[in-house]
Write a protein that binds this DNA or RNA. Structure first.
Lengths: 145, 145
DNA sequence: CTAGGTGCAAAAGGTTTGCGGTTAA
DNA sequence: TTAACCGCAAACCTTTTGCACCTAG
């Protein structure tokens, strides 16, 4: 697994990233991308559909799914899969885990530093080459006043 | 207690665990449990249905799902969720991560020792109390000859 | 006896697909 | 101009549910 210094990369350019792959920066894709970036609350496809539709009242569900697939494929957003729940989408492209509060359903990002990343990578035996990993927790939050 | 490698009876924890919860150790539950324990290949509900049906030809899909839910709820088996794929079931109750080979689809267990477990727990900020975590990798296997 | 479990069929729910019409480059 | 994309509806696939019948304790 690739482990690098924990430098925060500049926000990816929506237009240049798509163009590099020969894909069109359509208004639907742009709008889906902006909705995910505006509010860091890990919306589901359904949440995104509702928010996008306020700006593009004719967009369809299928197009939202298509846009999400494209954006995830380009690395412009991340898909978050926790248990068997509907997929959520996340604009945080830095290495992080997720914590889901089982009382509120809210999802929190937990940043992962290089030390933790290398410890996680050390789990892999020789010959196991990971492209990708997912770490998620679920539990409750203590009210610390 | 008689214990042998090739014993066809399930580990006693099956009966006592269910009884402790006031649940019945039915032949359907027993069979599902045995199928998961016999072959450590992370079968899906569908795989389990096919294998169980060879022994209990009248068992229904819904019953397989019900049994799985019961067994997972009792802690007798673990449900493995990787990405958006169908759930898989696992008899390894020790702390472990999963590695999925993207070429073959095969799933491997990666044991987690106490040092790694405490490092993983250290990711949680104050006030985050995790009941549960999931760690999974995906990638390829190098043929090491 | 009876609470709990099974089997069946049908539905739910998230996601994907096929296709005719539209649009960005 | 034209390949890529959109919108719509229908399909897909895993999982859940409602209900009548059955069974373990």
């Amino acid at each position: 697994m690739h482990v690098s210094k924990n430098s925060k990369s500049p926000p990816p350019s929506f237009f240049s990233t798509l163009r590099e792959k020969g894909l069109r920066p359509t208004k639907q894709r742009n709008c889906v991308f902006r909705v995910i970036n505006e509010k860091q609350d890990h919306p589901t496809a359904d949440d995104i559909f509702v928010r996008v539709r306020r700006r593009l009242p004719t967009i369809s569900f299928a197009t939202v799914y298509n846009c999400l697939e494209t954006l995830v494929g380009c690395g412009l957003v991340k898909q978050v899969n926790i248990d068997r729940e509907p997929a959520r989408y996340c604009s945080n492209l830095n290495p992080h885990a997720h914590f889901k509060c089982i009382k509120t359903g809210k999802i929190f990002d937990l940043p992962l530093d290089d030390l933790v990343l290398s410890k996680i990578a050390s789990i892999l035996p020789r010959g196991f080459n990971a492209d990708h990993f997912d770490l998620s927790f679920s539990g409750t939050l203590t009210d610390l006043n």
